[in-house]
Every structure is written in C-alpha cells, then in structure tokens.
C-alpha cells in the first residue's frame, strides 16, 4: 500500500498485504461461486465473467487514464472481489449489459470517485447492486427456473422473502405461506431456494466465512452482532404475532443475510476500525434490515442497511477511537 498509515504505537511488522488479504477473500468465495454455477449453469458463469472482467478493465482504465497513476491497483484483487460480490448479488438471468452497468457504477461511482481503494465510503459492490435494483427492477426481481449444469434437481421461483411479502399483502398468514410454498430450513441452508446466486446456499457462504476467520482475515464481531440483532428483533416480533412476522431462523437463513453479514459488512474500508464501533455498526445493520423486511416495501433490506450504516462509519471511528498505549 502506498498510503502511510498513522496509528498509535506499538507497531508490529506483518507480512500481510492488501493483495494477500483480498486473495483470501476470493478463495473464501469459491464455494459459493461453485454452488451457484452448478445450480444456475452457464448463464451464471456468464454473469460472473462479465462482472469480474468489467470491474478489472474499468479499474485499470480509470486509474491509468483518468487519475493518471502509474502504479496500477489491478494486482491487489480488490476489483475482482467487487466483481464476484456484485455477480453473487444478481439474478443469473441478468442481461450482460445490465451487469456491465452495475460494474461501472460499482467501480466508477462507488470506488474511484472517492479516490480508489481505501478511500471509498460505501461498499462498491452494493452501490452497484442497489443502483441496478432501483434502475432495472424488472431484471433484478425476475427469477426463472434454473438450467443447471449437471442436472441437479433445482427448483426456483421467487425468493422466500418475496413470497412472504406478497402473501402477507394478500392477507395470508406466515405459517400458511411457509406450508403452501414448501419452504423449509434444510433447503435454505443447503441450496435450491430461489434467489440471486449468493442467496441460494447458506452453507457454501458459511464455509468461506469460516476460512476467513481461521486465516484471521476478518474478525467475527460485526457478523455476530448483526446475527444477534436480527435474532433478537425477529424473536420479539415473532413471539408477539407469529401470523404476521417471520421467525428468527427464517430471517437468518434467507435473502442476502449470510452474504451481506459475512462478506460485505466486514469489508475493511467501509467498516469501523474498533471492535466497539463494529458492534454498534452490526446492531444498526441488523435493526435496519429487520425494519425493512417487516415494514418496508422491498422484501429484502440487507443491502440498504449496510449502505446506510456505511455512512455512519466515520462518526463511529471518531467516537470509538483506539486508546493510546499506556493511557487509561
């Protein structure tokens, strides 16, 4: 990294670099990518390829020709991570040019406008995703039966959160909707519920998360505080009115919860530096997500919640700054 980091002593030398950390994130995303390609077939592969390639190309073009920097940031894998995360956030039926627009917004608006890696306020992949969700709602909420690679028996329809949201509007109750649509937790944990590529398999994402924890690439406090908040908030509502509100396990396993809490909220650049700040950050994400899921007009609120809390990170960093060594 070219930027000089100033922090209170003591300092230790470590062999980690941006590139090695980002490479670990790519490795951690491999199970989720494999599952999505197996389930959704070559179309998903196309979305992934377009997304990653356009992120890399755009990053190079912008740093080289618009910011006129000599040292290119391609080798640090950060653009590739943005590309993979963006692709995992899209339905596999997204046309290639929509994916390209998403990548352009992610890298151009979400990252480079602020000055590139380390300067961006918002998670670039989520900026791209939310932009597409607002701009092309027809493509972004269109789910088709998958054409899987090896004939895996995959059934796809609207996302579980979408089913519940629609059903409640028509006056049905939650338990009835779960039974009618054959929603069960085993299915959500392993695969084959409708949704974007990163939503289909909680287990594949969790494997990647555990890898990151073991390699000490990320610390678990943000993820855990999101999960705890979601569990507590949904438990309270569910106990009060089980017909109207979904239960905690459902909320933890569906939608972008796992992908968002493990890979997007924990992004170094856009999350608070201190543990206390990170916990507050996670509580905010969990709470906003649940409010959008229960009372908002969108079925899923994870990406909005992370973006909203990203905006508070400078404040959280100010409030919970690191104690100087040797002082109380």
């Amino acid at each position: 990294m070219s930027r000089l980091l100033v922090s209170p002593s003591p300092h230790i030398h470590a062999k980690e670099s941006t590139a090695s950390l980002m490479r670990d994130v790519v490795i951690a995303l491999i199970p989720a990518v494999l599952v999505s390609v197996v389930f959704y077939g070559w179309k998903e592969l196309l979305v992934l390829a377009v997304s990653v390639l356009s992120c890399l190309v755009l990053e190079y073009v912008i740093t080289r020709y618009m910011m006129k920097k000599e040292n290119n940031t391609l080798c640090d894998f950060s653009a590739a991570v943005t590309g993979i995360l963006l692709a995992l956030n899209l339905p596999y039926t997204t046309p290639w040019w929509v994916v390209f627009i998403g990548a352009a917004v992610a890298i151009g608006v979400g990252k480079m406008t602020f000055g590139g890696l380390g300067q961006n306020v918002f998670n670039p992949a989520l900026v791209g995703r939310v932009f597409l969700l607002v701009s092309y709602p027809t493509y972004m909420t269109h789910w088709e039966a998958p054409q899987s690679l090896f004939g895996v028996d995959a059934v796809s329809g609207p996302t579980p959160l979408g089913i519940i949201k629609e059903g409640l509007l028509q006056g049905n109750t939650v338990p009835q909707l779960m039974a009618d649509n054959g929603l069960n937790y085993g299915q959500m944990l392993f695969a084959s519920v409708g949704g974007s590529a990163g939503e289909i398999s909680a287990i594949a994402l969790l494997i990647g998360f555990v890898y990151l924890l073991v390699k000490k690439v990320i610390r678990p406090h943000i993820t855990l505080s999101i999960w705890a908040t979601v569990a507590v908030v949904s438990l309270i509502f569910w106990l009060c009115a089980p017909d109207r509100f979904t239960d905690p396990l459902f909320n933890l396993l569906t939608g972008g919860m796992i992908l968002g809490s493990c890979f997007m909220a924990t992004d170094y650049v856009t999350s608070p530096m201190s543990v206390k700040g990170g916990i507050i950050f996670g509580i905010g994400i969990g709470f906003i997500t649940m409010m959008i899921r229960y009372f908002g007009s969108y079925p899923e609120g994870m990406s909005f919640a992370i973006l909203i809390m990203n905006a508070t990170v400078p404040l959280l960093n100010m409030w919970f700054h690191q104690k100087k060594y040797g002082r109380a």
Partner: peptide, 18 residues
C-alpha cells in the same frame, strides 16, 4: 425500452449534480 430509472429518481439527481 427503459433507461436507468435511478436517474429519473432522487438518487440520480444527486449523482448527476455531483
């Protein structure tokens, strides 16, 4: 077909203005 709807809505106004 449609353009990028976000630009007709408020977020697009802020982006373009910036």
């Amino acid at each position: 077909g449609d353009g990028m709807l976000a630009f007709v809505m408020a977020p697009g106004a802020f982006l373009c203005l910036g």
